[in-house]
């Protein structure tokens, strides 16, 4: 079944958002797919082939028995473009469900990041102090560096990166956003 329900104009006579709106919105989509060979290439190819944006993308098998993967895509576009993206995703044969978590109700979004920060003396102490404030864990340390593990919204991770930059930030690895709708 093409499971494009809430918020999809193709199923509803009324779309209360401005159809001609030029406002660029950011939407988080959860796409449940068969974990078959090439499925990620199909999804990415759809975005590049039709000129859509990918801000963030995560994918992993979430049902090992059923071989289902969950792809979380954060994308941007005007309201009609977002509708097209969802409909185009729904066309793909291995796609079972497309959920627009931005439209369907409140959702939690989390991202994990690793930060390598090198420094000595006060800088090092300041980095550690800020990491505590952000509830980041130290997962590796040498006399001259830390690797922090931090989880949170992309905004929180951006904020942490800004603070670490003058304190000897060397490298960042981010997972991209994983998201679930709130409630049962």
């Amino acid at each position: 079944m093409l499971n494009i329900k809430k918020g999809a104009s193709s199923h509803s006579a009324y779309d209360l958002r401005d159809p001609n709106g030029e406002i660029i919105e950011s939407h988080t989509l959860a796409v449940l797919v068969d974990n078959e060979s090439g499925v990620l290439a199909r999804v990415i190819g759809l975005f590049s082939g039709r000129g859509y944006n990918i801000e963030s993308l995560t994918v992993a098998e979430v049902d090992h028995q059923g071989h289902r993967s969950r792809i979380t895509v954060v994308t941007t576009g005007t309201a009609p473009v977002i509708e097209q993206i969802k409909a185009q995703l729904g066309r793909l044969v291995p796609v079972h469900e497309v959920h627009d978590l931005t439209v369907e109700g409140p959702a939690v979004q989390r991202e994990l990041a690793l930060f390598k920060v090198a420094g000595k003396g006060d800088q090092r102490i300041e980095a550690l102090r800020l990491a505590e404030i952000f509830r980041a864990n130290v997962v590796d340390s040498t006399l001259e560096s830390f690797v922090f593990e931090i989880t949170g919204t992309p905004e929180k991770i951006d904020a942490f990166a800004e603070l670490m930059r003058p304190l000897g930030l060397r490298e960042i690895a981010r997972t991209g956003v994983a998201a679930l709708a709130r409630g049962a």
Binding site: A8, Q84, R91
Partner: peptide, 12 residues
């Protein structure tokens, strides 16, 4: 095809 609807022309 859902993707054909409202792709180019908004319909009522």
């Amino acid at each position: 095809e859902a993707s054909s609807i409202n792709k180019i022309i908004r319909v009522d």
